[in-house]
Amino acid sequence: TFTSIVTTNPDFGGFEFYVEAGQQFDDSAYEEAYGVSVPSAVVEEMNAKAAQLKDGEWLNVSHE
């Protein structure tokens, strides 16, 4: 299960995956970082959410 939350205070020191406002979700980078295949429906969902981000916001993507 993939989830996401919007934050204005990303923790770059941890093992977190963020999408910056104005960027798209990079499923290849996510797969490389976590060894998890990302279904195309999830990629579309995360890109739709990322498109709604305002300046200074980040989308924190995770999975269980």
Rank of each mutant, 00 (worst) to 15 (best):
Y18G: 01
Q52R: 05
Q23I: 04
G35Y: 04
G22W: 05
P10V: 04
A48R: 13
G14F: 06
A33K: 15
D55K: 14
S37G: 12
F15T: 15
K54V: 08
T7N: 03
T8H: 08
S28A: 14
P10Y: 01
V61R: 00
H63N: 05
E44P: 00
F15R: 14
F15E: 11
A29D: 05
A48K: 13
P10R: 06
F15W: 10
F17H: 04
N47W: 03
V38R: 00
G14W: 07
A21I: 05
V6P: 03
G22P: 01
A41C: 13
M46R: 00
Y34K: 08
L53I: 02
D26A: 04
P39G: 05
P39S: 05
V19E: 01
T8N: 09
T3R: 07
N9F: 09
V6D: 01
G14C: 12
G14S: 14
A29N: 03
S28Y: 11
V19A: 00
A48G: 09
K54Q: 10
Y30V: 01
L53G: 02
N9S: 12
A33V: 10
Y18I: 04
E32S: 13
Y34D: 04
A51M: 11
V43G: 04
V38C: 05
N9Q: 12
T7R: 00
K49L: 15
H63K: 01
V19R: 00
G13S: 15
E64L: 14
I5E: 10
N47S: 07
H63W: 11
A50G: 03
A33F: 13
D27V: 15
T7K: 03
D11F: 11
Q24P: 10
S62R: 15
L59S: 00
P10Q: 04
S62N: 07
E31T: 14
G13Y: 09
T8L: 10
N60K: 15
Q24S: 10
Y34Q: 04
P10D: 02
G56S: 04
E45W: 11
E31M: 12
E64I: 14
V43M: 06
K54T: 08
N60L: 15
V19D: 03
E32V: 11
G14R: 09
G14D: 07
L59W: 00
V61N: 00
S62P: 05
V19Q: 00
V6S: 05
E16K: 15
E20H: 09
S37K: 15
A29P: 00
A29V: 08
A48W: 12
D55S: 11
T1V: 13
F25L: 04
E64W: 11
F2W: 15
T1D: 07
F15L: 12
A50N: 02
E64K: 14
G14A: 11
E16G: 15
A21D: 02
A50V: 08
N47G: 03
D55I: 13
E44N: 08
S40D: 10
G56M: 04
F17I: 03
F15Q: 13
S28D: 09
N47L: 03
V61I: 13
M46K: 00
L59V: 01
V42L: 05
D11G: 06
E57V: 05
V43W: 06
V19P: 01
A50S: 06
P39Q: 04
E44K: 11
D26R: 05
Y18E: 01
S37D: 06
K49R: 09
K49I: 15
A41P: 07
S4F: 10
K54G: 07
W58K: 03
E45H: 06
N60F: 14
N60P: 00
E16W: 14
E16Y: 15
W58C: 05
L53Q: 01
F12N: 05
Q23A: 13
E31P: 00
S40H: 13
P10W: 01
F12W: 12
F2Q: 02
V38A: 05
S37W: 10
S40T: 12
F2G: 00
E57L: 01
K49Q: 14
